[in-house]
Design a binder for these strands. Structure first.
Length: 593
RNA sequence: GCCCCCGUAGCUCAACAGGAUAGAGCGUCGGACUUCUAAUCCGAGGGUUGCAGGUUCGAAUCCUGUCGGGGGCGCCA
């Protein structure tokens, strides 16, 4: 807000400094004034004073903070009070500019009314980015660890869109590999002809996989059967391929249900199976170019990155692109997939991989290899690393080990608990609404706990914490939205125009407007760092400010008609902001609860 | 052996590009519903930001070292 005005003031400050022979800083940055209880921006002159001191030009015997204050005072004096501002002051080396409250409040409301549910959105950039996330394996379970990926990926997509990017949502399905063969082996031998239940397809698929692993561990001799089956699959035995396609579809249907429930959809779904053959061809090309070393039959096909780059220190190390028996592994397929993405979307400004942090080295190896191969877009690849979800006691979630919390169990439990709370808090609602509210609150609570955390921090899954609806949590924000909605409903017609306040603003109004105004900046930062956390924090701050306002400032029964009119508009703006922020977190904003 | 991440209140976490007085929630104690939904609000208590140096006018934030925890390092995905 007020970027052009501030740029002009910055120029005037430069001129004032120049007049006094004081070296100008390379940039003049503005930040909010803390502890002020009103709106304004500040900049400081410590850098200027320090630079002056280093140059030996500082007035004799004057310390940097003291000199900074002197310069701030000097600038304040020369600047006067610019148009649109109420007050200018120099405090402890800072120059504080206070906006005219009425004008500022009106400006914030104007933006909110113009953007409405898109409040906080930035101008279009005309750039396209692709985000690959979720990446589930068919024939396996979908647990809470996978949930963090989906939620983070989806939120990042929404944030990037709000920041003006054109976003391609991509999924990459692990539909082939040893795990699939093991599953098929178990199915053919012990479950032939069975079909998954209508409810809980993913659980059923996961159970059969776990069973396969258990059988093979109990009797390692059976591995030979699995290898034989893998050979048939590799030879494209029609019977096996048909069964693979049919069973894969069961997993896909299960995934679709989950995505539907989470509010996630993809623009492009890639399958590992579609890049396997291109990958094998690519490996041959890499061998021919001397990028990959063929150590067969005694070893696999390897890319020795450090050697290729002439690095003496271990950096990128080496990795295998093709097994010694000629079968593919992850790297065989990730390389052609990266290429395929840029063939389909040549104008990508960024190709982002949402993948957990344990694969950081691997990702760097893939990116570096593509760079060595000469792909000009290699520098646009970005690994968005996030930490894993563990169980208490630092237990890694593993479908093999059976140490998992299944997504469907979590969602069911969340809905059930939320439903009980709705029943207690608002029994007057009809059943359909109660169900909808329970879903919004339950899913929201889960999503918020995963997003309101630094990507690089491990989440320890705990039932009580994940489903705690109190405190800093989605329901708190949703409740503020509901309260705002409730006031607007009672008021009748929603206000469509904007008013400047005619009364002296209450501190709670000041704080609320101030928090609303910070949403666009939160969007900018969240998009820049790929951190939904910034939105989660800002959403909470807005809700907190709104609840405080709600408590202290009557709206419909305010003391004067003009106050009612202004506050109604403020409530509407707050509702827009809350809905917008929740939308960026992929959390529903119910109308009542 | 090499590399990455984490360490902030009793617990779980915040803290914009290094800026003014490090903030929330939970838990504990004490208050506020005849008033727009109390899933709310107010108050109290709680800190040598693991430790030691360094850079800087200024460090939770950057650098070096160190301790503790987690993770990754050629045929798993």
């Amino acid at each position: 807000m007020f970027e052009t005005e501030l740029a002009q003031i910055a120029e005037r400050i430069r001129a004032i400094l120049a007049e006094h022979g004081i070296p100008a800083p390379e940039s003049i940055d503005w930040s909010p004034i803390p502890f002020s209880g009103t709106w304004g921006v500040a900049t400081n002159f410590f850098r200027v004073a320090a630079a002056e001191a280093r140059a030996g030009k500082a007035p004799q015997g004057m310390k940097v903070p003291q000199r900074a204050q002197q310069i701030a005072a000097l600038v304040a004096e020369a600047l006067g009070t610019p148009e649109g501002f109420q007050k200018v002051e120099a405090v402890r080396g800072y120059l504080n500019l206070y906006f005219d409250p009425a004008a500022y409040a009106q400006h914030v409301l104007e933006v909110a009314f113009r953007q409405q549910q898109r409040f906080g959105s930035l101008a279009p950039r005309g750039q396209r980015v692709l985000v690959e996330y979720s990446q589930p394996n068919t024939h396996k379970a979908f647990h809470v660890g996978h949930l963090r990926n989906v939620i983070l990926g989806e939120s990042v997509c929404r944030i990037l869109e709000a920041a003006g990017y054109d976003v391609v949502r991509a999924n990459y399905i692990g539909d082939i590999g040893l795990h699939v063969i093991k599953w098929l082996w178990n199915y053919i031998n012990y479950h032939h002809g069975e079909a998954p239940p209508a409810e809980g397809k993913i659980r059923w698929m996961g159970d059969l996989y776990a069973e396969a692993v258990k059988r093979l561990e109990a009797n390692p001799d059976l591995e030979a059967e699995v290898r034989a089956l893998f050979a048939r699959w590799d030879a494209r035995d029609p019977e096996i391929v048909a069964l693979w396609e049919k069973t894969r579809q069961w997993s896909m249907e299960g995934f679709d249900e989950v995505y539907e429930r989470l509010g996630v959809h993809f623009d492009r779904v890639y399958f590992e199976s579609e890049v396997e053959d291109p990958g094998k061809e690519l490996v041959e090309e890499m061998i021919a170019k001397g990028i990959a070393t063929d150590e067969r039959p005694d070893g696999p096909v390897v890319v020795h990155l450090d050697e290729l780059l002439g690095l003496k220190k271990e950096t990128y190390r080496s990795y295998v692109v093709l097994r010694s028996d000629g079968t593919s592994l992850y790297a065989t397929k990730d390389l052609p997939l990266a290429i395929l993405k840029f063939q389909e979307y040549p104008d990508l400004a960024r190709s982002i991989y949402v993948i957990d942090v344990r694969q950081s080295l691997y990702m760097q190896q893939i990116f570096k290899t593509l760079e060595i191969m000469g792909y000009p877009w290699a520098d646009k690849l970005y690994h968005l690393a996030y930490e894993v979800v563990n169980l208490p006691g630092n237990v890694t979630m593993s479908s093999r080990e059976g140490t998992v919390v299944l997504l469907e169990d979590l969602m069911r439990e969340a809905a059930a608990r939320a439903r009980a709370v709705v029943e207690e808090k608002n029994p007057a609602l009809d059943d359909t609404t109660k169900d909808a509210v329970a879903d919004a609150v339950g899913m929201g609570a889960i999503k918020y706990t995963m997003l309101a955390r630094e990507n690089t921090k491990i989440v320890t899954f705990d039932w009580e914490r994940a489903l705690d609806f109190n405190g800093v949590a989605a329901p708190y924000i949703q409740y503020a939205h509901v309260r705002a909605n409730s006031i607007l409903r009672k008021a009748g017609e929603a206000p469509a125009d904007v008013l400047a306040p005619a009364h002296t603003l209450h501190p709670a109004e000041v704080e609320l407007i101030s928090q609303l105004a910070q949403l666009p900046e939160a969007v900018r930062r969240a998009a820049e760092d790929f951190k939904p956390l910034h939105i989660a924090n800002q959403a909470y701050e807005i809700a907190r400010a709104f609840n405080d306002f709600y408590n202290q400032c009557p709206v419909l029964n305010a003391e004067a008609e003009e106050v009612v009119a202004f506050r109604l508009r403020l409530v509407a703006a707050a509702k827009y902001a809350l809905a917008a922020a929740l939308r960026l977190l992929a959390i529903d904003a119910p109308e009542r609860m």
